[in-house]
Simulated assay, not measured.
Amino acid sequence: MTKFDAHLTELDTPAAIVDVQRMQRNIERMQRCTDGFGVRFRPHVKTTKCTPIVRAQLAAGGRGITVSTLKEATQFHADGIGDILYAVGIVPSKLPQVLALRRRGCDLKIIADSVASASAIAEFGRAQREVFEVWIEVDTDGHRSGVEPDGAALLEVARTLHGNSTRLGGVMAHAGSSYDLDTPEELAAMAEQERAGCVLAAERLRANGLPCPVVSVGSTPTALSAVGLDRVTEVRAGVYVFFDLVMHNVGVCTMNDIAMSVLTTVIGHQIDKGWAIVDAGWMAMSRDRGTEKQRRDFGYGQVCSLDGTVQEGYAVRGANQEHGIVWREGERDSDIAARFPLGSRLRILPNHACATGAQFPEYHALDERGLTRWSRLHGW
Rank of each mutant, 00 (worst) to 15 (best):
S334G: 09
D141E: 14
V199R: 03
V199N: 05
A116N: 15
R159M: 10
A276M: 00
E123R: 13
R55G: 06
G238N: 08
R206D: 05
R289C: 03
Q21N: 13
L8Y: 02
C198D: 13
F76P: 01
M283V: 00
T34N: 10
R328N: 04
R236Y: 12
N208G: 07
V217F: 09
Y240M: 11
R167W: 06
A284L: 00
E192G: 02
R32D: 09
E185P: 04
T140P: 08
P221E: 01
G163W: 07
T48I: 11
G82Q: 15
F242T: 05
R22Y: 03
F76S: 01
T2S: 13
A100Y: 07
D107L: 13
L101H: 05
V18C: 04
A202M: 05
G36Q: 05
L245F: 10
A259P: 02
P213N: 11
V171W: 06
E192D: 13
V134Q: 04
L99Y: 10
R22L: 08
A280F: 00
G125L: 06
G125V: 09
D244I: 00
T254Q: 11
G299H: 02
R55T: 10
E10T: 15
T220Q: 04
T220L: 05
R102N: 12
I27W: 06
R159E: 13
V252I: 07
R295W: 11
V45L: 13
A122G: 03
D230E: 15
V67G: 00
G290R: 10
E28G: 03
H364I: 02
A226C: 11
G105Y: 07
R63W: 10
R206H: 06
Q270P: 03
Q302M: 07
V241A: 11
Y240W: 13
T13V: 07
A280M: 00
A237P: 01
D113N: 11
I267H: 01
S165A: 15
L210A: 02
E368H: 14
S93T: 15
A365G: 14
V316S: 01
V171I: 10
L349I: 00
R328D: 01
S93M: 14
T48E: 11
S375V: 06
E185C: 06
I258T: 02
E186W: 08
G343K: 07
G38S: 09
G357E: 00
A259T: 05
W135I: 02
D182F: 14
S219L: 05
N320F: 01
E137Q: 14
I90R: 03
G146L: 10
Y300T: 01
M255C: 14
A188K: 08
L205T: 10
G301F: 01
V131C: 14
F41V: 01
R104P: 05
V310T: 08
G281H: 05
L349G: 00
A191T: 06
H269M: 11
L99R: 12
S219K: 03
L306H: 02
